[in-house]
């Protein structure tokens, strides 16, 4: 992002020239947090000196707005289209709305829904832990740790998730037993059969979590790098250990950068779990498919599943909004002022 043009606009151009809102926010935030220090707060522009002083109190502006026939026409067309769409869907005999409604609360569907939620939450949590580990390794001084982390992200981002899921489900073909003992062919203390250990659920969890970790590693790394190195130095000069610096100072600030894309990952994961249907994972889509193989209501069952996916993603989006607010702590008040300053440039949220 270029800084110079904004300065030019600030000094040279006429008042009210369109300063890029992000830009002016960026270079004002760290420098000048106190509004009283701001030499020229853009929110309170001095009224230009008027030879004729205005009558006090100024009456509210009462002006006729220009007609906008194009906009009215577009809105009317959009409404007409949506109404037609709703009509054709509602009256369409082939959609079997009664079936859809009946199956929305079906026990099997709800069971699949629960598996989807479990898979999403568990694989995101494990993925986040793996991602933090990989990111910290990536930023360490040791070339071995950096290399290991790079290998991990390279491999799992380089192969399709579908392939990974099928691979984990069939891991027994490669490693028939898993055990704890001396590695490199030494004696084993405990041993399990892969066929007992690897159920569709554990295979799905392994595949989703390990794959997610590779993506989270990049997100976490970007978050950690976004924290001012001065923060680390200030913490170190208090005598904090590396772990304390990470846990108390760096990660909480990195969270602001990590959380929005993580929320997107979570929402995406809610739907990615449907890939598990290739290994019969018993989540929402698999269950819906099993039902339509019996009753042939293919479209109705897909709509039932989709409705539930939409409910989940909507709830997750709302949750994301609140979590983001929580981690804006210490920045929220600042952004109130920034928002105030930027009001002329931004659309008000509806």
């Amino acid at each position: 992002m270029e800084v110079t043009p904004a300065r030019d606009a600030d000094s040279g151009a006429a008042p009210g020239s369109p300063i890029d809102p992000e830009l002016s926010a960026d270079h004002e935030l760290p420098m000048n947090p106190d509004p009283s220090m701001n030499p020229d707060p853009p929110s309170d522009p001095e009224p230009p000196i008027d030879p004729e002083p205005p009558i006090d109190p100024e009456p509210p502006i009462d002006a006729v707005r220009p007609a906008r026939p194009g906009r009215w026409f577009a809105a009317a067309a959009a409404i007409a289209f949506l109404a037609w769409l709703a009509y054709t869907i509602v009256v369409n005999e082939n959609l079997h709305w009664d079936v859809i409604v009946a199956y929305l609360g079906d026990g099997r569907i709800l069971g699949g829904l629960w598996v989807t939620i479990q898979l999403t939450v568990l694989s995101m949590v494990i993925g986040l832990v793996l991602g933090v580990l990989a990111a910290v390794m990536q930023l360490s001084d040791s070339p071995v740790l950096r290399g290991t982390s790079a290998l991990y992200t390279w491999f799992f981002r380089g192969t399709p998730l579908l392939v990974q899921l099928i691979f984990w489900f069939n891991i027994g073909l490669v490693f028939p037993t898993f055990g704890i003992g001396v590695p490199f062919g030494g004696p084993k203390l405990i041993e399990w059969q892969a066929n007992e250990l690897i159920t569709p659920f554990t295979a799905a969890l392994l595949g989703l979590a390990i794959n997610e970790g590779a993506y989270m590693a990049e997100i976490v790394r970007a978050g950690i790098r976004s924290v001012d190195p001065g923060q680390r130095e200030a913490a170190e000069s208090l005598g904090m250990s590396h772990r304390q610096v990470l846990r108390r100072v760096v990660l909480p600030q990195a969270m602001r950068v990590i959380i929005p894309p993580t929320g997107n990952q979570f929402i995406s994961m809610l739907k990615t779990t449907s890939m598990v249907s290739v290994i019969a994972g018993a989540e929402l889509l698999t269950v819906a498919q099993r039902i339509y193989l019996g009753n042939f209501e293919v479209i109705a069952m897909l709509i039932v599943a989709s409705i539930w996916y939409m409910v989940l993603t909507t709830v997750a989006s709302v949750g994301q909004h609140f979590i983001e607010r929580r981690f804006e702590r210490g920045h929220a008040r600042l952004s109130t002022r920034v928002r105030r300053n930027l009001r002329p440039f931004a659309k008000e949220p509806a």
Binding site: L29, N32, P33, D34, S36, M37, R329, G330, H331, R333, L334
Partner: peptide
């Protein structure tokens, strides 16, 4: 107060 609410 948070740092962002304080003068330099």
């Amino acid at each position: 107060h948070y740092p962002a609410q304080l003068s330099g």
